[in-house]
Design a protein around this nucleic acid. Structure first.
Lengths: 334, 334
DNA sequence: TGTTAGACTGAAAGTGCTTTCAGTTTTGCT
DNA sequence: AGCAAAACTGAAAGCACTTTCAGTCTAACA
């Protein structure tokens, strides 16, 4: 007899021919109800498969903690790799992983104002989203342990990388390979954020070139929306320039793949005629044999989760800021 | 200020000079209250250190607003793409997405026995994991709406594809291109499951070849663990056979990429000297220009979520079984 | 047999929160 | 300025139980 709705105390009462009071009493102080009545109620409870909801819930809440992760709407592979790192370390610790995807700044605001209150979370990880001062204070005031990934804030735990340094590493590597005509291809998304990682990568890239006295023409700095196809087109333009670059630094692996694809379609040999270097070290980078600046995405997720757990364990400790070192991974494309 | 009693929503309302309705709204749908009022309420909340009681909350809202997803430990890109589809349709509906990653059969058992009981889930999606009869009944008895993806069961909602048909499509396509020496490369993971999708794909593949009276030597059927590197090695062996195949059907895109990589390293031209076809249509497939059998992963996730929502809305409806049609996507590798 | 203490029981009043609905204020247009 | 549409707000009606309190019944004692 598959019951559609979960039975309530009322259903049990009706079936047993008693009042809800009695059922309740039966549940909480069984010795205060007549054994005959008790029998009736018990039978009804069994028949209906009644489980007092609140109790079950409370019990469940006791044993498992909940960790929230706020992430930009999950489209970029890099988020996913970090998420994987997080899940990996949380899962064995018996924590539930609750995902909140955000698609606008408003949306984020909403989560940040309600989650510390109603979320009943034990901790929060915010992935690649900038959080402003007042929101940070809110989190702190409500004592919700939090770890930020990618956009740091002095008062909270953070896991970050040095994007400027990364840009510079890429430039230095290409310079070392003898390239002098090097272009940059970044993305244009998220214009609302002031310190976009991609800009920092461009800065580092610029600095390194400047230091080496190599000039970077404006035509060599291109931005394309974060999509394979549009990136390919921009790469195409770059490669069809009268005096095209011999190397391209793409600010993200995803875009580097777009560049590679453009090269493939133009029959340009990589790395012979064109060197390509990316940034991130996505899973795909390995497949594509893409030389790239690795920011150890999985590791960043893992680390964030660990920091969060230790902060939950001892809430009074000061916020930790961890900078994950970048590694240049040399593969076949540069 | 001796705080004997925990502040309730009424206290906050009084202090902020608004009604409890407004306070509640402020907590749940902050964007629906005027920013001035919001500020007042926020101040009052902060001043009182108000924390809404989760239990009362869950009671008032008939539902918990939480959907669980049980997924194999998230390593395969295909899970992630489905998850993306799920998140995409759940997020605007304001459901929390709770992820349970599973790494063993035991682990799954554990979740399946506790999740329906604790009852703080409105629905459940089980991704690519086989669920046995007793577990299914458990779910049904406790009235937890559930959708299965990939491993169907007659009594529950399912979203699946026809793997046999898919294998056959791939074979037919390659045959149509004139290939006669066609190899299969599958994976060896998840040995505990009887009807592994990859085996079905192989079956379909076999049948199609048989129908065309093309023989499939044993040396042409290879299994490699689900890893890029090991797949590449197996592909290498295949390609170094004295009489190598002119086409390879890889049972998953991920492995197809391994095959492509092997070909690249052996300087074998694709598709001229070797045709490669995959299965899945991962994001990466597009980058790699991989011809593949698309199973519309995002869509499967979306669909599963929609079915779940409609089942939550009207719990009495019969389980639906949806088979997502496969599409052969012709790109550059075959 | 009449009381009456004691054991049971149910109506009704909370509990802390959400949500519907109707009323009020703002806003946007003309 | 004039008015409909949109945005806000609060009263009140739930939700699934627990608890209080006023009975009703029984059994036992005089």
């Amino acid at each position: 007899m598959p019951l559609i709705k979960k039975p309530t105390i009322y259903d049990v009462a009706k079936r047993a021919g008693v009042s809800i009071t009695t059922v309740s009493r039966m549940l909480n102080t069984p010795d205060k109800v007549n054994s005959e009545t008790r029998e009736k109620v018990l039978t009804a409870i069994d028949a209906l498969g009644f489980v007092p909801k609140a109790e079950a819930r409370a019990r469940a809440m006791q044993h498992t903690g909940r960790i929230g992760v706020i992430t930009p709407f999950f489209t970029a592979p890099s988020f996913i790799q970090r998420l994987r790192g997080i899940a990996e370390t949380l899962s064995p610790k018996n924590y539930e992983l609750v995902i909140y995807t955000v698609d606008s700044s408003n949306h984020l605001q909403g989560y940040l104002s309600s989650l510390p209150l109603t979320g009943n979370l034990d901790g929060l990880i915010i992935l690649s989203l900038p959080v402003d001062d007042s929101q940070v204070h809110r989190l702190i005031d409500h004592g919700l342990p939090t770890v930020l990934i990618e956009y740091p804030h002095p008062k909270l735990n953070c896991v970050e990388i040095d994007d400027v340094e990364g840009g510079s590493m890429a430039a230095t590597y290409l310079l070392g390979k003898g390239h002098r005509r090097i272009a940059f291809l970044g993305d244009t998304d998220l214009p609302e954020y002031s310190i976009h990682p991609v800009s920092s990568r461009l800065n580092g890239f610029r600095q390194a070139l400047k230091k080496a006295r190599i000039k970077l023409p404006d035509t060599f700095v291109r931005l394309a929306p974060y999509s394979q196809e549009q990136t390919r087109q921009v790469a195409n333009e770059l490669l069809n320039l009268p005096d095209p670059p011999t190397a391209i630094f793409a600010a993200t692996d995803f875009q580097a793949l777009g560049v590679l694809k453009a090269a493939r379609h133009l029959n340009i040999k990589v790395p012979k005629q064109l060197a390509v270097i990316g940034f991130d070290d996505l899973d795909m980078a390995e497949y594509a044999d893409l030389t790239t600046v690795s920011q150890h995405l999985d590791e960043s997720g893992r680390l964030a989760a660990e920091i969060l757990l230790s902060q939950i364990a001892s809430p009074s400790r000061l916020p930790r800021h961890v900078k994950i070192p970048l590694t240049l991974i040399e593969r076949q494309t540069a």
